[in-house]
Design a protein around this nucleic acid. Structure first.
Lengths: 205, 205
DNA sequence: ACTTTTATTAACCAAATGGTTAAACTGAAT
DNA sequence: ATTCAGTTTAACCATTTGGTTAATAAAAGT
């Protein structure tokens, strides 16, 4: 595998370092000096390329959000059968989490800290998850009688919860259930099938 | 309702303020001055009563953890039938979250930041959730054939996820599903029945 | 060869922040 | 009335931290 030239530029190295530090320490906890050290590059370069801390944060967040959420929305809005949609959602989400385990944490953290600022300034409305179509689809299926009667909101909440929560709670899970990283990854792999199965068993007639 | 005298002492007011500020801003993001202002009390008093920021944080965390987790562990370890246990867990957890919506956030945040330090120094091992008994019970039920075949770990993960996640993701849920606070509370109330029902439907034979 | 632009560094700065201190206040015990 | 411990305040201090700058090196253009 040939290393992409861009990956070793100053800018790219700073971005990678920032991603790592923001992830583990949060926006407030991250130090510009830590990021510079992690990249092995002078701190002034962070300001040279990204102006200030908030801008740097924004760049990192948007890069990932713009890649990921459109994919999720495409699934939500497609014309697939409900169960297939659920399967695809779980798989897509887990794929993303394995590549960027920090993302949900990142988002929820900042959303918790200051939702207004985060949503209006940083998170473009086009890229926010929009499950409206999925909710309608569930309602239709219930009315048609193809699945058991269930509130669409609760089904959606259950789907999101079971998919996302393990990644947010990873440190707690690994500790309290005495799992190694490998065991955790293995468990996540199983969930690609377990979650859709669990849901199907619950709502099928 | 007569106001408890203790609730208006300087120490208690500082604690309440700290709880609020730590909750919304996190440990790193919280400012001692913010906490003092929130309490309407001189900043020096924070140091007078709690020595330093970390100690203050510790006091707040332990107070709640020592109240809550023993309750949860008692449920995990009791001899109730599985389904009743699930119901009680959900109800107990939701009760706690309504009173202290910040708790799971608080814990996961610090656990994510620095698990080792947090667990060894702050979170006494006696108060950590210990679901071993519940896992065994699920395994027994599967073997007896009273419920469908399911991995105990995944069932536990599903239970925790569906119960806890909505509180962690609250700001995102309220925004993206355009819910008011009242609607959110209402949805949570419904989940007391929805979660056990969803699980039962999925695992019953 | 030279000039100009871009990239990089080390030293520096101002503001924020956790923490200290000395003085003053309060209320009960003597 | 005085003392004395506990409480409270404003001013202060040292360090951290985000951000700037002036000087310099490297690259690109002429």
């Amino acid at each position: 595998m040939v290393k992409n030239k861009k990956d070793s530029t100053t800018e790219a190295r700073l971005l990678a370092a920032a991603k790592k530090v923001f992830t583990t320490k949060g926006l407030a906890g991250a130090r510009m000096q830590d990021i510079a050290d992690e990249a092995g590059i002078n701190k002034a370069m962070l300001h040279y390329y990204f102006r200030d801390k908030d801008k740097l944060f924004e760049v990192i967040f948007l890069e990932e959000a713009n890649k990921f959420f459109p994919k999720i929305n495409k699934i939500f809005e497609s014309d697939m059968p409900l169960f297939e949609k659920i399967e695809q959602f779980v798989n897509e989400y887990i794929d993303e989490m394995l590549e960027n385990p920090y993302l949900p944490w990142f988002i929820l953290n900042e959303l918790n800290r200051d939702a207004d600022q985060f949503l209006s300034k940083i998170w473009d409305i086009k890229n926010r998850p929009n499950p409206a179509k999925l909710l309608q689809q569930i309602e239709r299926e219930v009315k048609k009688g193809t699945i058991k009667k269930i509130s669409p909101i609760h089904l959606l909440m259950n789907l999101l919860s079971m998919t996302i929560f393990p990644f947010i709670a990873r440190p707690m899970i690994e500790r309290n259930l005495q799992m190694t990283a490998a065991q955790f990854d293995n468990m996540i792999a199983e969930r690609r099938k377990e979650i859709p199965k669990f849901i199907l068993d619950s709502i099928k007639k």
